[in-house]
Design a protein around this nucleic acid. Structure first.
Length: 571
DNA sequence: GCCGTTTTCGGCCCGACTGTTTTCAGTCG
């Protein structure tokens, strides 16, 4: 179920958008935007909070607290309703067209009565923009194109897709740059990516820009300068290439990694110290450069430790850094095992032998094979097939002295919380993952009970991809997550962080909520092929965004500690 | 509208690029 926080944050954000269209004070607008982010990221549910509690949320003062109270009491915010009456909410959608901001959107509405993207397209066709002040022939063409981009590209791509594209750009341009790397939301490992940002260091940007625009998948150059070039790609995201002098590398990487909200905070810290921070470095008032070569140096001169990119969202990392309380987040190198994988016995594409060989090559110390159980009838699993696989796993173990093979299964959680086999058969597995694969639209109270029942099963060790979402295709199942997490913590059941780019499940915001309730996590690839094992970086990135340390993640633990965790369920 | 190791008022991040504006506003990140 959508938390009150998310709906309230959306309303505050809408208030900011509508005020920016009607020409409200820019600083007031920014205050609303900051508060919207803070409310969305606040771990406690705002439903039921009183004014004093609401004001304790950072960036929420008296005025916004009252608006939040208005929301929790009436389901809406009066000022938003009033502004909607003045400006149709659909005018907001005009600012979604690249190149159209609040000022021009308002102008189009006031002068031509345009209140939606469709109306804008029609006005263009009828030539009604001719002669409107500020809209020359070039603007018309850009808006026309912007509408097309908005309509066909949809919006964001999965992090895996963006990572592949970024790798191709970096590889192609590396010979022409002193340094080159991806930055932006991809470096922060957001689950979906709008634009791919690539940063290069060179004293001679021209050859880089020329090679960049000549890449085979580039279809159009949107903006081309000496320092920045933006391109559109064939059925992919836009790519920005920024080129900076080599001695600005650290400051530039810090800046272009973002997030924008994080950067605002770091620049505010600089201003308070009488300094100026830009992508070229940290400078004194007289222009003397204090730091710029590395990110560590830049953060250091601001009095901060280096902050992992995955935390840079202004959701508490600045405060934690100032207090010396940043989490020592889990890394790919910390991962010692994998508790969820498939073979061609069910829907995997590689044999048991190939998967085990790949797990050994990853340098894991333990690896669980967890093929699907009989309730997913399409995979035609039987008791006999599962026991035969177990025999084969035990035989294979002899060939892998450095890798402990675990035999497990991925159970199906039925609508009532039951799983495929009875306790006797389940007791034969080393580890059991249990996941939801159907009945996604159940009543939230039923889904909550369903997941709690699965946690209470003494043989279920891990809840696989707990929300069952598929990014861009299937919404999360609705449940009272805090209740589910309490049950997981109480019963010693780990929540999975599934590494598939279209799952990333649990999502980072739910990870943070679960963490506060004492839950442990299993970062698992759910690999169906050898290649899928590379997805571990996306799951670890998601775990980092959830502020997880190695201690929170059972798949970083040495085998004896893991075995204790698994054993505690049944005793 | 928020906030305070320059405090309760006066600030609030910084730069690149575009188009049409003859000196810069709007947009974007």
């Amino acid at each position: 179920m959508a938390r009150a926080n998310d709906e309230a944050a959306a309303l505050i954000q809408e208030l900011a958008d509508l005020l920016s269209i009607t020409g409200g004070d820019a600083f007031k607008i920014r205050a609303y935007e900051k508060a919207a982010r803070a409310v969305a990221g606040h771990p406690e549910d705002i439903a039921g909070m009183d004014l004093a509690a609401l004001k304790r949320i950072p960036t929420v003062g008296e005025a916004i607290a009252k608006k939040l109270l208005d929301y929790t009491e009436t389901g809406t915010i009066r000022q938003v309703e009033a502004l909607r009456a003045e400006i149709p909410a659909s005018v907001r959608t005009l600012t979604g067209v690249p190149g159209l901001g609040p000022k021009k959107a308002l102008q189009l509405y006031r002068e031509l009565g345009i209140a939606s993207v469709d109306e804008l397209a029609a006005a263009l066709d009828e030539g009604r923009l001719h002669g409107v002040k500020g809209f020359g022939p070039k603007s018309e063409e850009n808006i026309r194109h912007g509408i097309e981009v908005l309509r066909q590209k949809g919006d964001r791509v999965l992090v895996g897709t963006a990572a592949e594209l970024a790798e191709r750009v970096v590889e192609a341009l590396a010979p022409l740059a002193e340094r080159i790397a991806h930055a932006g939301s991809l470096r922060r490992m957001r689950e979906t990516i709008g634009d791919v940002d690539v940063l290069a260091a060179s004293d001679d940007p021209r050859p880089l820009m020329e090679a960049f625009t000549a890449l085979p998948f580039v279809t159009e150059v949107v903006a081309g300068g000496d320092k920045k070039t933006s391109v559109r790609t064939f059925r992919g995201p836009d790519i920005d290439l920024r080129v900076v002098p080599p001695d600005s590398w650290g400051a530039a990487l810090q800046y272009f990694t973002g997030s924008q909200a994080h950067n605002v905070r770091t620049r505010e810290i600089a201003v308070r110290a009488g300094l100026k921070l830009s992508e070229y470095g940290l400078f004194t008032a007289s222009g003397e450069r204090l730091a710029s070569a590395t990110e560590e140096e830049v953060y250091g001169r601001l009095g901060l430790p280096w902050i992992p990119p995955t935390l840079r969202e202004d959701t508490g990392e600045i405060e934690a850094a100032l207090k010396g309380a940043l989490p020592d987040v889990v890394t790919v190198e910390d991962i010692t095992g994998d508790l969820h994988s498939h073979t061609d016995l069910t829907d995997g594409r590689a044999s048991l032998e190939e998967m085990v060989e790949a797990a050994a090559a990853r340098g894991l110390t333990y690896y669980a094979i967890t093929d699907h159980a009989p309730d997913l009838a399409m995979h035609r699993m039987t008791d006999a097939k599962m026991l035969a696989q177990r025999e084969r796993v035990r035989e294979l173990q002899k060939d892998y002295p450095g890798l402990v093979l675990l035999h497990g299964t991925e159970l199906n959680i039925g609508p009532d919380g039951s799983v495929d086999w009875d306790a006797d058969f389940l007791a034969g597995f080393d580890v059991c993952v249990a996941s939801i694969h159907s009945h996604f639209a159940q009543d939230p109270a039923d889904t909550t009970r369903r997941l709690i029942t699965a946690c209470e099963n003494p043989h279920v060790n891990v809840i696989g991809h707990p929300t069952a979402r598929q990014i861009g295709r299937r919404a999360q199942v609705q449940a009272d997550w805090d209740e589910v997490f309490r049950a997981a913590a109480r019963t010693g059941t780990a929540m999975e962080v599934n590494c598939f780019p279209d799952r990333l499940d649990l999502p980072a915001d739910l990870i943070r909520r679960a963490l506060r309730l004492g839950v442990k996590f299993a970062v698992d690839t759910d690999a169906h092929s050898v290649e899928d094992m590379r997805n571990i970086r996306f799951g670890v990135g998601t775990a980092q965004r959830g502020w997880l340390t190695p201690d929170d993640v059972i798949t970083t633990w040495p085998l004896p500690r893991l075995r204790d965790f698994l054993a505690k369920k049944t005793t």
